[in-house]
Amino acid sequence: MQNVISSRSIIKVRKKKKKGLGQYILALILGLYTLFCLMPILLVIITAFSDDKTIASKGYSYFPDKWSLEGFKYVFKYGRQLFTSYGVTIFITIVGTFFGLFIMSMFAFALSRRDFMFRKFLSMYILIPMLFPAGQLANYLVYTNSYKLKDSLLLLIIPLSVSTMNIIILRTYIQTSIPDELMDSARIDGAGEYRTFFQIVAPLMKPVLASVGFMMATAYWNDWQNALLYIDTASKNPLQLLLIRIQKNIEFLLNNKNISGAALAAIQQGIPEYSATMATVLTVIGPIMIAYPFFQKYFIKGLTIGSVKG
């Protein structure tokens, strides 16, 4: 026994020192791949701060001849619309995330009660939409034609608020990380089910709510498809739809003047400029980039919980 322990500790010591050539090659490969992931994002940032005329004449570059803040000044010419869109996106992200977390965690709580016979039905009920989704066309027709919800922000909020996977993550967390004894003792002390949930269980769910919440928030923030299908009024355009509109404008310009040197010059003077577009892209993706490091820990944990079958 003594022998085993000592040989193990020797191995551990040796392992710590072992940084052979292979590790440096691995570092190089991983580094290159990381660079591949980073380069496009860097290009967005650099282009946003580049001088527009240089891009028009020499093309996109990581080392622009001239830096400029013109792009951002231009962004403010989209001005009002950009601020409105920011407002819409922030609104649907916050309302949707909290609404979804609220109703899904209550559902997950009920689903985690093992002696609740109805739960078999509930499990099936959430599984079926995942296996047999109606698809965007049927959704579109029912939402707009039967419910008459076209151009309503409700369609940007409710359909994304419930997802089978997230309910399973929440349920698994309650089952594995919150001891039943805790809930039982709360009941013995006379707390009803609602009180048990809101005062005992919900506070303990913070880590999983953070991870699911972050995933939901990014889904809301990045949702372009529902916006494209359902939203018409400019005052209800979220950021992603604004991006699509800008792209449509560029396309319009390009298609009108058959791509040529002359057209490039025209676009240069025209509305959407390279650096301004990238500056807009940056303002759209920026907030998530900033939030990500704070949520990373929870985010990775959430993904991991989801993979546990329960």
């Binding site: 028009a56 093309g59 990238m278």
Partner: peptide
Amino acid sequence: MIIPVFISYAAVQFIVYAFLGNNGM
């Protein structure tokens, strides 16, 4: 490496265009 997944395709298309457009990277 995880960061790109948080960029919506509505934004990604501009990035792809910056690489593959006529005067792209």
